[in-house]
Structure formats: C-alpha cells, structure tokens
Amino acid sequence: MISIEGALCRQPVGFPTRLDIGGNTPSCNEKRRSLFDAQDQVDRQREALIANIEGKLEQQRSASVLFTASWRLV
C-alpha cells in the first residue's frame, strides 16, 4: 500500500496542493537525503575506479643498452 507521504515523493504535485497536504514531509526529505548520499558514494567509487584503471594503463618507458657493436677498419 502506498502512503500519502510516499505518493508525495513520487508524484508531481502542484505547489498549492503540497501546502494543503503538509508540504515537504520529513520522510520525503529523508528519502531525498539518502538518495543524494547514495549518489555521492557512487560518484566516489566511480572516480576511484577511473583512477585505478588510468594507473594500470600508464605506459612506463625506460632506455637501456641492449648491445654494443664496435669495429675497426684495417
């Protein structure tokens, strides 16, 4: 069963109707806050994954002598 508070959070209701019913209810604000917190957590995890993948994709180059060739004309 859907409560009136839950219906207010999900359905677009005009401003005067919200004022008549009671405006933003605490449970609606709590749901909104938990949604924002969850989105922030997802964003942090996404950034961490991107940084991890970028670190793995970085190419490291180094120069070293593989062999030396010398000759003399006689």
Rank of each mutant, 00 (worst) to 15 (best):
S64I: 13
I53Q: 07
Q11K: 00
K56V: 05
M1K: 04
E58T: 10
S34Q: 13
S64V: 15
Q39E: 14
I4R: 05
R46V: 03
G6R: 01
L8S: 02
T25P: 02
K31N: 03
Q60W: 12
F67C: 08
I21V: 14
S64Y: 15
Q11P: 00
L35P: 01
S70D: 05
V65I: 15
A69P: 01
R33S: 08
D43R: 03
N24H: 03
E58D: 07
I21R: 00
R72Q: 10
R61Q: 10
T68L: 15
S70T: 13
I21T: 07
A63P: 03
R32G: 03
L8A: 07
E30G: 02
G23H: 08
E47A: 12
I53Y: 14
L8N: 01
S64L: 12
L73F: 12
R18W: 11
A48M: 09
A7L: 10
M1N: 00
N24L: 08
R18H: 06
T68D: 10
E58A: 12
V65F: 05
D20Q: 07
F15N: 06
L19E: 15
S27T: 04
L8Q: 10
K56S: 06
V42S: 04
E47R: 13
G6A: 13
N29P: 01
I53H: 07
R61Y: 11
S62C: 10
A38G: 02
G23K: 01
Q41V: 15
T17Q: 04
R72P: 06
N24R: 02
V65Y: 03
T25F: 14
I2S: 11
I21K: 00
R72D: 12
D43P: 01
R33K: 11
K56D: 05
G14H: 09
S70V: 14
D43Y: 07
I53E: 07
A63C: 13
I4Y: 06
G14D: 15
C9D: 13
D20C: 07
V74D: 06
E58P: 01
T17Y: 05
G6N: 08
I21G: 00
I2R: 10
D20K: 00
A7C: 04
F36L: 11
R44Q: 15
E58L: 11
E5A: 09
L73Q: 10
S34P: 03
Q41D: 15
R10Y: 15
R32A: 04
I4T: 10
T17R: 00
T25A: 08
E47P: 00
W71K: 00
L35F: 14
L49G: 05
T25W: 11
Q45R: 07
P12N: 09
S3R: 02
D20W: 09
E47V: 05
S34Y: 14
D20R: 00
E5H: 13
V13D: 02
R72V: 12
D20N: 03
R18P: 00
V42W: 09
L57D: 03
E30L: 09
A38L: 02
D37K: 02
V74R: 01
E54L: 09
P26C: 00
P12G: 05
R32P: 01
D43A: 06
R72Y: 10
E54D: 11
R32L: 14
N29K: 09
A7Y: 03
Q60H: 13
G6F: 02
N29Y: 08
P12A: 08
L35R: 11
G6S: 13
Q45V: 03
R10S: 13
I4M: 02
L73I: 13
T17G: 01
R18I: 02
S70Q: 01
R61P: 01
E47N: 04
V13L: 11
